[in-house]
Design a protein around this nucleic acid. Structure first.
Lengths: 234, 234
DNA sequence: TAAAGGTTACGTCATTTGACGTTTGTGAAG
DNA sequence: CTTCACAAACGTCAAATGACGTAACCTTTA
């Protein structure tokens, strides 16, 4: 969907509220849509909306919440999307969240070779640092990260600790990820590429050598499996 | 709550998913919590969790979603908050969202005097520009905005259009809001203060004069009423 | 003062949820 | 080869949802 972030925010607020009806009303007011119009879109009678907002029904199911949120967004869209546009602007800051597939800080530091083992990876550059400490890892979708994020956001992806492993998935040949690392002056203690088609890019290798970055690529078949294998650590 | 943003995201994702159980499992996996442990925290039998994750029950109520999300967060907190910390970092970008109480772009431009009328305001500075055009408004909680946001975030609050009205609520005497405007070089076409206790700060008036900013203060009793009066515009 | 539009309040009823306990798979760890 | 822990699969049942329709209740506005 297009307004996913706003939708998630709305649905989340409604679900966490100790009185969901109040929050439903709040959003309906923001969108300036009457109970009647909303109910028409939802294909239910207006009293249903009222029952929720007034608190007779206290815990709408996710299906219902989802329908309400979607209806509000759809109606607004039909009116030119005024509300969506305004809020959309404000939600752009959360974009980079989507590029992050997994992130974790270890209780105990791990050695690079452990990360390599568990992620079924093979070294490309820098095999000397096998025992260096790694304090956590971040797995990013490199396509989303590189295409959609600003350099500032890119650097935010990377946690505060510097000694971390950085996994890039959906990598073609490894050029852009290494370039991105150079440009954002990130200093991960290990970079792992996943999903390489064919042979790694020579420039990528050269960059890794110059920056003295240990570089590896993972043989795990799918991104999901990579993530779940990593999760086993700690 | 402390991890509100993460909680909202989780609850929102679960609620919007066309199969909520899958998303519940996803988050349970991320937090590395077994069905059993989660069920203990939730005070239900483990099969309940399983029933959801496996899809037998398809649309959990908001109460249940809320309990699950909270339990996951609480368990993680008890373990030192590893996951929360990582994700928390990533959610900080959404902080400024909370400082915004209302925001809107008009279909047709309005005149300053209309904004003044509908918001029941009185001029402090700059009564000459009554007919200037205003293309939208933003209402911010000045305490949150000034205490919690960086200058960059502060300037993001302000929409893309420059000719907008900027409302500050929970204002003490108006000094900080005007200072913030000066420091972020915002150029609203109208600034309205709400909730002033006693007389406006002389420095605020001076700043407004120097910057040639039309400045007013609103008499509306509550923030809610101010927002709903503004919503009538358009 | 009616009429209109929006909202609340009920009464009713089929379908689901929320919950239990027990049983049946399924890997890892001994 | 067994155990153990985890998760899936049922069967069951009271309580709540999801839904309807109608009547009552406020504000505007004609």
């Amino acid at each position: 969907m297009k307004n996913e972030k706003l939708a998630i925010r709305m649905a989340g607020e409604i679900s966490l509220a100790e009185n969901p009806g109040v929050v439903i009303k709040k959003w309906r007011d923001i969108f300036n849509i009457s109970q009647k119009e909303l109910s028409r879109k939802l294909q239910v009678s207006p009293s249903v909306i009222s029952d929720y907002e007034s608190g007779r029904r206290k815990s709408p199911g996710t299906k219902f919440v989802s329908r309400i949120v979607t209806s509000l967004l759809v109606v607004d869209e039909g009116r030119g999307g005024k509300v969506i546009k305004e809020y959309g602007k404000l939600m752009e800051g959360t974009k980079f969240f989507e590029a992050i597939l997994a992130i974790k800080e270890f209780a105990e530091p791990r050695k690079i070779k452990e990360i390599i083992r568990v992620s079924e990876s093979e070294f490309l550059v820098g095999e000397k640092n096998l025992d260096n400490a790694v304090y956590g890892y971040t797995v990013v979708d490199s396509v989303k990260a590189i295409l959609e994020l600003s350099p500032l956001e890119l650097s935010m992806i990377y946690g505060s600790t510097t000694q971390r492993a950085l996994f890039f998935t959906r990598v073609k040949r490894g050029r852009s990820p290494l370039l991105a690392i150079k440009l954002t002056s990130l200093r991960p203690s290990l970079v792992v590429l996943h999903g390489i088609e064919g042979s790694p890019d020579p420039l990528a290798l050269e960059l890794a050598k110059r920056e003295r970055l240990p570089l590896a690529f993972s043989h795990v078949d799918t991104v999901e499996n990579l993530v779940s294998k990593l999760r086993e650590l700690d």
